[in-house]
Design a protein around this nucleic acid. Structure first.
Lengths: 132, 132
DNA sequence: GTAACGTACAACCAAATGGTTATACAAGAA
DNA sequence: TTCTTGTATAACCATTTGGTTGTACGTTAC
């Protein structure tokens, strides 16, 4: 399954939306089953309008989608956005492993390195160009 | 490897910290290798103080730790916090799979269900108690 | 010692956030 | 029709955020 990569702005929106416990809770409820905004709002000690704003933040991050059903607006979770955020976190992990690999390269001189590694010239221990 | 679960406040802090492209970039640089705050600040078109504030946000979320080395403050990434955030996202995914399982239970009546499923009485199709 | 560097933090400002109340409107129920 | 329910949005407010400049302080280099 291929998941579209996140733009910086989309990543901003998703993490921003997840950075609030009420919104995470709304998302959990929406994942468990679809609900109307009102039935969600009943669960929280805040005004309907406040909950509606939280829902709007989740919607702008595409973590949920709304769908009109009669007079109700049904809130449905969109797991793809969650997965994209997860993928972005995996990239941090990946950077970390690349770093560990570079350290491994230093500890293991090229001539004694295992043959499945990239040749010394393409090892690029620091891809950051002109960075000092 | 057991990773400590996140409290709500910690989750708030981590996702909040990740919800800014400058901070994600700082984190990436810190993951690739340890740096001083000044060497980080040189990379961005903003004041040193602004970068220092971003670093402080990352530090409060425990995504980085600072360590004094001579007159420099070295910024080091803490992947554990990234992993905790990742784990929290996995829990959303888990909720989704539980929901799919419940739907499967409905489509597959208990008497014809495969024997490795929980018995009907403990299936608990909705754990949310008094929720209407 | 002095100078330069790296850091810390206060004070300030504009904009965004997270909440409120009030108003308006559309769809269903009576 | 009228009443109720669910939704949307505006206006307002306090707090936080993300940036600025300025000041201060400890450490290293000269």
């Amino acid at each position: 399954m291929v998941i579209q990569e996140l733009s910086e702005a989309e990543a901003d929106a998703i993490f921003r939306a997840l950075a609030d416990s009420t919104r995470r809770d709304i998302l959990r409820r929406a994942i468990r089953h679809e609900r109307s905004i009102s039935s969600l709002a009943d669960r929280y000690a805040m005004s309907w309008a406040a909950v509606q704003k939280h829902v709007a933040v989740l919607e702008r991050a595409f973590l949920i989608v709304k769908e009109r059903r009669g007079k109700e607006q049904i809130v449905r979770a969109n797991l793809d956005s969650v997965r994209r955020a997860s993928l972005l976190l995996d990239q941090f992990e990946q950077l970390w492993h690349e770093r560990l690999d570079r350290i491994g390269d230093i500890l293991t001189p090229p001539d004694t390195a295992s043959p499945d590694r990239a040749p010394p010239g393409t090892a690029s221990p620091d891809k950051e160009g002109t960075e000092r």
